[in-house]
Simulated assay, not measured.
Amino acid sequence: MSNHPAEAADRLPHTRESLAADLAALGVRQGSTLLVHASLKPVGYVAGGPHAVVLALRDAIGPDGTLVVPTHTPDNSDPAGWQNPPVPEDWWPVIREHAPGFDPQVTPSRWMGAVAEVVRTWPGAQRSDHPQVSFAALGRLATEVVYGQPRAGMLGADSPLGKIYGLDGDVLLLGVGHDSNTSLHLAEYRQADPPPARLGAAVQTANGGREWVWWDDIDLDESDFELLGADFDATGTVRTGRVGGALARLMPQRAAVDFAERWMSENRK
């Protein structure tokens, strides 16, 4: 038997109730709009799995809160730019012609984690219709957050990120680092002359068909987000703590974006 009761307790399954208590202790606000980026592995065993985690998140923000997650589909993009892995050039026109069009009702997210997928498929969830960087939301302001995401300027002022900024929402990084903090991209749109990018994706048409579309946006770059995030941590604005077994960071989104805007202007060439 262990002589360390705290360590023994750490091995117990986490529950909806214990996670909700951890989130409240971290500072998650009742009634808030909360954008969550999560990886469940660091959290440890949870009785009920990702379903229980989403219930705990909803308990923490309360009945008047709004839970938002990224439901991005980065594989629905121009194959000419794929690197991990790349595909042969003669595949590109086949992919552009035959990839299923994005349908916000059924297209699964990719690489966003189990929490995002549980929220996306939750009864009553609302999802934006951007073919690459959609968001899903549950709660009082869900429709307001996700409605009208533009194809160009996809993570800019009129995106769900911009809506969360306007609502003075918070960002929770649960078991993930600042490199997963999508909100920092909002600061890139505020830079002078951000580098341009030509983007493409398959979309569903009004008659149930599909087509490949192109749009002009900016060349998003998260390669320095960990450095940026470390400097932001040093300001004391970020609250850190354990949610289950995972290190979690909670921050006001406005403060993070405003700091990132200044940081990028000073540190990016």
Rank of each mutant, 00 (worst) to 15 (best):
S2F: 02
N3R: 15
N3F: 12
P5A: 11
P5Y: 06
A6L: 15
A9L: 15
R11Y: 11
A20T: 03
A20L: 05
A21D: 08
A25Y: 02
L26K: 04
L26S: 00
Q30G: 03
S32T: 14
S32K: 01
T33K: 03
H37E: 09
A38G: 06
G48I: 08
P50W: 08
P50V: 07
H51I: 13
H51N: 14
A52Q: 04
V53R: 12
V53G: 09
V54G: 00
V54C: 03
L55P: 00
L57V: 12
A60H: 04
A60P: 01
A60V: 03
A60L: 07
G62Q: 06
V68F: 08
P74V: 04
P74N: 08
N76A: 04
P79T: 12
G81Y: 09
W82Y: 14
N84F: 15
P86K: 10
V87G: 08
E89D: 15
D90Q: 15
G101H: 01
G101T: 01
F102G: 01
Q105V: 14
V106M: 11
R110P: 00
M112G: 07
G113V: 07
V115Q: 10
E117G: 08
V118R: 09
V119R: 08
P123T: 00
A125K: 03
Q126K: 14
R127Y: 02
H130A: 01
P131I: 09
V133F: 09
S134V: 04
F135H: 11
F135E: 01
G139C: 09
G139P: 11
G139A: 04
E144A: 11
V146C: 08
Y147V: 14
G148C: 09
G148F: 05
A152D: 13
A152M: 05
G153W: 02
A157E: 15
P160Q: 10
P160A: 11
L161M: 06
K163R: 15
D170H: 11
V171E: 12
L173Q: 07
L173M: 09
G175N: 10
H178A: 13
S183W: 01
L184V: 13
L186E: 06
A187K: 02
E188F: 06
Y189R: 08
R190M: 10
R190C: 03
A192W: 07
D193Y: 12
D193S: 13
P195W: 13
P196S: 13
A197W: 00
A201W: 00
A201P: 07
A202F: 03
A202S: 14
V203S: 02
V203M: 07
Q204S: 14
N207R: 15
E211I: 00
E211S: 10
W212A: 02
W215A: 07
E222I: 06
D224T: 14
D224S: 14
E226M: 06
G229A: 07
A230N: 12
D231V: 02
R239N: 03
G241N: 10
V243Q: 05
V243F: 00
G244T: 09
R254W: 03
A255C: 09
A255E: 15
A256W: 04
A256H: 06
V257N: 02
D258N: 12
R262F: 03
W263F: 10
E266P: 00
K269S: 13
